[in-house]
Design a protein around this nucleic acid. Sequence first.
DNA 1: GGAAATCCGACCTATTGAGTCCTGTTTAAG
DNA 2: CTTAAACAGGACTCAATAGGTCGGATTTCC
Lengths: 134, 134
Amino acid sequence: MLQLSKKVEYGLIALRHMALKQRGQVFTAKEIALEYDLPYDLLAKILQKLTRANIVVSTQGVRGGYALAQRPEEIQVSHVIRTIEDEKPMIAECYAEGTDTCSIFDACTIRKPLGKVQRNLESLLQNMTIQEII
Amino acid sequence: MLQLSKKVEYGLIALRHMALKQRGQVFTAKEIALEYDLPYDLLAKILQKLTRANIVVSTQGVRGGYALAQRPEEIQVSHVIRTIEDEKPMIAECYAEGTDTCSIFDACTIRKPLGKVQRNLESLLQNMTIQEII
DNA sequence: GGAAATCCGACCTATTGAGTCCTGTTTAAG
DNA sequence: CTTAAACAGGACTCAATAGGTCGGATTTCC
């Protein structure tokens, strides 16, 4: 509980890989999966999501692959999580944007005090970029 | 993902309830469950765990119930989580004490940088007590 | 045209979270 | 001394999700 998903971990590992070695080079999902022993299909889907969010750029075809679309210091960990999970990182479902689905929303007495934890987490993950995990 | 479990939420709600109204009084699982519309059986088990951890004290029998075993400002949210989940709060399994079961432990390149997030979370939850969520 | 790559939806499955059930034991009160 | 109200706690069910897989389409270089 309270854990980042494997998808997010894999995404961060891949982004770090690209940030570390980049010089106009593209990296294939296959080579990244091999290097870190990650499940290829899953990693591929993650990279596709990051592409749609414009965090990486992809080139298709036989010499294709992925590269960072932004400088490492511009890529917030927070944004990576939000992209992969389709949700911002949050410590309880009541902090989601949009509809509140929590079964005890009305009777809940801890939402406000835990907001402090939520905001702290948010700013921490916003201020942390790929540059810092190289 | 990254969310506190319902169990922890329920536990915190119950502890806050006791902290808010306490004057030597005991509270039954039933009345707390009713007041906040929580599942009774589940709440009961959570309170039993908190009892074993000496966060609350129980008195059995017909006029029995639960009361805080410590002053609200002494009960760390961190300790509550650890008690209910049998694990300290952590953002990745590799930060667990004891054996590392992560499938990519050796190849993982983000454990060290994410340690900053882990430590920040830990200190935040250690410094937050029931007193602060009243 | 074929190989190597991204793209992407559909599917599977094991684990976990959330909740329930049942049977104890304890104890105050009548 | 019996009953009812409470805690104690293991076993179980159910549903949702995480994690992973598959199949096929499209793109592009040689």
